[in-house]
């Protein structure tokens, strides 16, 4: 049933400056790309994509950026949060040679699908794009899967200097890629989609959510596509018809906010 279940936090780990992972017992099946609604009682309830999936334990990774994540960041092992979900469709693994492009905290939710791909021994490359090197996280976790990891920083403090999408463009020109998976700033993802041309593409979208069960309409994009239920993962063909993609999101009142 779609109401929060109160559970204690198992672990709370700092991954990088202002970035933490929280884990909790959740024995049900969760697909890479799905999300939970996380309730911090007395503060807010927010959507959080899953960043860690084991049989009994699931995790979320987030940046301390707003009221809800600030409260979540302060919580310690044993403190209680409410969880409902998982929601959304999740990624679909198709193709042999895969390219993953994560920007900022978008990196977190890509890791489980990379791990899934590597379990199937699929050759893959992951681009981790961050503003500066101290914001990088999950690099070691990804290298352990045997995937190729490339880093881009906006300021050039580590790896490629520039946007992750620009580095991806170079790879797409050189190598044959069967599928591109991405999560990050939407303008980065829309640039990436334009570089992909006919290469299949899956992107995870983020919108302000309220019900998370497909009725309130708050998170709709394009012609009534519900990010909470029809997404959050959309393919390239769908996104090419979504006029909002890379252009605007809506705030809690429904006003358009340009990216």
């Amino acid at each position: 049933m779609n109401h929060p279940i109160i559970i204690p936090i198992l672990t709370s780990t700092i991954e990088a400056t202002d970035i933490k992972t929280i884990t909790f017992h959740y024995p049900g099946d969760v697909l890479p790309g799905q999300f939970f609604m996380v309730w911090i009682p007395g503060v807010d309830e927010i959507p959080m994509s899953v960043s860690q999936i084991t049989k009994r334990v699931k995790g979320i990774t987030f940046r301390n950026i707003g009221d809800a994540t600030r409260a979540l960041y302060q919580l310690k092992k044993g403190d209680h949060i409410g969880i409902r979900g998982p929601y959304g469709n999740g990624f679909t693994l198709i193709g042999k040679r895969l390219l993953f492009v994560g920007g900022g905290t978008g990196i977190a939710m890509l890791v489980p699908v990379v791990e899934q791909a590597r379990k199937k021994k699929l050759p893959s490359t992951v681009i981790l794009g961050v503003k500066t090197k101290n914001q990088l996280f999950f690099e070691d976790r990804l290298r352990r899967t045997g995937t190729t990891v490339l880093v881009s920083t906006d300021d050039g403090s580590l790896g490629y200097k520039g946007f992750a999408s620009d580095l991806a463009k170079e790879i797409l020109q050189k190598e044959k890629i069967d599928m591109v998976y991405t999560c990050g700033p939407e303008r980065m993802m829309s640039s990436l989609l334009s570089y992909c041309k006919s290469i299949p593409f899956q992107a995870s979208l983020e919108r302000y959510m309220k019900c998370a069960i497909g009725i309130c309409g708050q998170c709709c994009v394009g012609k009534g596509l519900r990010v909470c239920l029809d997404g959050p993962i959309f393919d390239g063909a769908t996104l090419k018809k979504v006029e909002d993609f890379g252009i605007y999101r809506r705030d809690a009142a429904g006003r358009k906010i340009l990216f």
């Binding site: 049933m1 779609n2 109401h3 309830e45 927010i46 309220k210 019900c211």
Partner: peptide
């Protein structure tokens, strides 16, 4: 409108 949770089943 209000902060979440705004809908529960």
């Amino acid at each position: 409108g209000y902060a979440n949770p705004t809908v529960v089943e």
